[in-house]
Design a protein around this nucleic acid. Structure first.
Length: 256
DNA sequence: AGCTGTGAAAGTTGATCTAC
DNA sequence: GTAGATCAACTTTCACAGCT
C-alpha cells in the first residue's frame, strides 16, 4: 500500500474525499519526521474512512440505486423561543463527506462548512418548519413531526424510505419509515439532516436578533440560559416566545 | 498562555411504563 | 386514574485535558 507523496498532498486528499494516495517517488525523499507525520495523518485518514463507512450502514441496508433513502432530523426542540426546524437529506453513498457527524458533536464553524458540502454533494435536500403558534397549538413533539413532514414534502426527489431520528414515525405520510434512536450518531443521512436543520435554524434566530435585539437570540438561539431568563424577566415575552412552555407560563404569570 | 475538544450536568418538552 | 420514573429529543454551560 502506497502513501501519498507529501503532507500537503495528503491534506489535499483528506479534504477532497479521504481516499489514500498512490505510490509516489517523493515518499523516499521525505525527511524522517515528515514521514512520521504523514503516517500519522494516514492512520487518521483510515480511521475516518472506517467511521464514514459505519455511518452508512443504515443507508446501505435499506438503499440501492433504485431505492433512495432520506434521513430526517429536527432542531430546536428545547428552546423557549423560535420555530422548530427539520431537514431531509438524500445522500449519494458513493460520495463521502469527510467530517460528517452528529451536529451536536460539531462546532458552529464546522457545522456551517459541512452544511455547504452537504448541499453540494447530496442527491437532494430540503428544510421544513413549524411556527411558534403551531408549537403552542399542537405541542412541541407534534410540531417537530409536522416540520419533518414538510421537509420530506419539499424534497425535489422522492425517496423510497425515510430514516427518522428518534422513536416516532411521521403521521399521515405515505412512505415506508424506519425510526432510529440516536440516529444522528448512527446514520450519515440523519447526521446530514441534523446539520442542515441546526444551521438553518441558527441563521433564522440570528435574523430574529435584529428584530428583538434585547433577548440575545444571536447567542443562545432561544435556548434557556441565564442571560435569556434575565432578558425575559426584564422585557417580558416577545411574540416569538413559546407560551406553552411551563417556564414561560410561570414567567408570564409573574410579569403580567 | 491560549485555543480546542470532550464529557458531564442541567435546562426544555412529550410519550410510555409501572406501581399504587 | 394518577403520579413518578424513565427514555426519547433538543441544546448550553462548565470544568478539565491536551495541544500549539
Amino acid at each position: 500500500m502506497g502513501f501519498p507523496g507529501s503532507i500537503k498532498e495528503l491534506r489535499r486528499l483528506l479534504d477532497q474525499n479521504g481516499m489514500p494516495g498512490m505510490e509516489d517517488p517523493l515518499w523516499e525523499m521525505l525527511a524522517d519526521d515528515h514521514r512520521i507525520a504523514v503516517q500519522e495523518l494516514y492512520q487518521k485518514l483510515l480511521k475516518e474512512r472506517q467511521r464514514l463507512e459505519e455511518l452508512l450502514t443504515w443507508e446501505k441496508k435499506w438503499g440501492s440505486p433504485a431505492t433512495l433513502v432520506a434521513g430526517v432530523d429536527e432542531a430546536g426542540r428545547g428552546p423557549l423561543a423560535g420555530p422548530v426546524t427539520a431537514a431531509a437529506v438524500i445522500l449519494d453513498v458513493s460520495v463521502p463527506i469527510p467530517g460528517l457527524n452528529d451536529s451536536k458533536q460539531l462546532s458552529p464553524v464546522k457545522r456551517r462548512e459541512l452544511a455547504g458540502r452537504i448541499k453540494e454533494k447530496a442527491k437532494a435536500w430540503a428544510v421544513g418548519w413549524a411556527s411558534v403558534e403551531e408549537i403552542d397549538r399542537l405541542n412541541i413533539r407534534r410540531a417537530s413531526l409536522l416540520a419533518m413532514k414538510r421537509a420530506v414534502a419539499a424534497l425535489p426527489v422522492q425517496p423510497s424510505i425515510l430514516l427518522i431520528d428518534g422513536n416516532a414515525e411521521i403521521p399521515d405520510l405515505d412512505y415506508r419509515q424506519q425510526t432510529v434512536v440516536g440516529g444522528d450518531r448512527a446514520s450519515a443521512s440523519i447526521a446530514a439532516a441534523s446539520i442542515l436543520a441546526k444551521v438553518t435554524r441558527d441563521a433564522y434566530m440570528e435574523d430574529l436578533h435584529w428584530r428583538y435585539p434585547c433577548y440575545g437570540f444571536d447567542k443562545h438561539k432561544g435556548y434557556p440560559t441565564r442571560e435569556h431568563y434575565a432578558a425575559i424577566e426584564k422585557y417580558g415575552l416577545s411574540p416569538v416566545h413559546r407560551k406553552s412552555f411551563r417556564r414561560e407560563k410561570r414567567l408570564e404569570q409573574q410579569i403580567f
